[in-house]
Amino acid sequence: MERARDVRQLPKAHLHLHFTGSMRPATLLELADKYGIHLPEALRGGQPPKLRATDERGWFRFQRLYDAARSCLRAPEDIQRLVRETAEEDVRDGSRWLEIQVDPTSYAPRLGGLIPALEVILDAVDRASRDTGLPIRVLVAANRMKHPLDARTLARLAVRYRDRGVVGFGLSNDERRGFARDFDRAFAIAREGGLLAAPHGGELAGPASVRDCLDDLRAVRVGHGVRAAEDPRLLARLAASGVTCEVCPASNVALGVYDKPGDVPVRRLWEAGVPVALGADDPLLFGSRLAAQYELVREHHGFTDPELAELARQSLRASLAPEPVRTELLREVDAWLVPSRAEGGRDGRQEAEREHGATR
């Protein structure tokens, strides 16, 4: 029986990763000590905190922990460290293209204002990309918990910095709060400025929140989107339109959306023809990074190596990587499927090519 390939060697794009949530736990502790910040015990224990955000109290606790971690990012050098270490972790996991999501208003009070905060973040992204060789782009995300006028300000800012690496516009936080249509003008500003629409939906709220992302915000990608699996007609619509769901299996379980990894409907989305891009969401709080998501669907959903390769292809196709970059990375995914001489030589290579052809 052929040995399973190392998913860390599988070239892939990482399309769902939040800024503060990408931090290494050890870095959080060091920054907290540096600034004399008392962290909640759940962030100091060395293990991912126990979370269940399916009710308002649980989501508040999750948000409180996230805010506590964010409060430790106080200077440009902290931002630079976070982005560099995040890129290093992604490179180890086989990420060849990273799109990281950030709400710069959260960092503005400590970094001199909204525009300086975004410039600090983009400078850190440029430096980390040069240092690690990992291409990194930014999605600016508005917050559902804030006024829609704030989202419009962010959309205009995001468009202004399109030439500095901002490629998309998102909408994060609890999708059970407010209506997607309240943010339609912000997304229109972003879309008219050439940015991709990638709002969150279908995680804490049901299929209707995914439909709202499509109808009101004209989403090209949906952050999470897993609850679409509850509506066959919506699945068919996503498949027909080619809208990618950024699925974060470990996050879904950690937040209590599903009880166990096998319950996350990755296979249902896959079989319906919905493009899927696996993401880590907030590794700081959920305890696992990108490669672990591929391992999870392998272990709990029976994804074969050719199917994992196709998931990687779907992440690359949904990315904003330039076409020549995407084409080369897709070739490298094909190469990952080809066994070494010791694993089967020419016959094994032909078999891998047949398997690959069956997944297209």
Rank of each mutant, 00 (worst) to 15 (best):
L118V: 07
E192H: 08
P135D: 08
F187Q: 10
R191G: 07
G223S: 06
A186N: 15
A128I: 15
A124T: 05
A124R: 13
A158F: 05
R211L: 12
R191L: 11
L204P: 02
V210S: 05
R176C: 01
V140L: 02
A198R: 15
R227Q: 07
V140N: 12
D123N: 14
M145R: 11
R160V: 01
D150W: 04
E119Q: 11
G178D: 03
R156W: 08
R191C: 02
S129R: 10
D174T: 10
R152N: 09
N143G: 07
G194M: 00
R160M: 13
L122W: 02
D163R: 13
A180V: 02
G225W: 05
L149M: 06
V226H: 05
E175Y: 00
D123F: 10
L139H: 13
L204Q: 03
V138Y: 03
V166W: 00
A197T: 09
D216E: 15
R181D: 06
L171S: 12
G201R: 13
C213K: 09
V220M: 03
R156S: 09
R160P: 04
R218S: 12
L139E: 13
V226P: 07
M145F: 15
L118A: 06
C213N: 01
E203S: 12
H200S: 02
L204H: 07
D174L: 11
L149V: 07
I136C: 10
L196P: 10
A208V: 03
S129Y: 04
G225N: 04
R152M: 07
H224T: 03
E175L: 10
A219H: 07
D212I: 06
H224V: 00
R137A: 02
A186F: 14
R221E: 14
A180K: 09
L195H: 01
L217H: 06
S172A: 14
G202P: 15
P135I: 01
I121M: 00
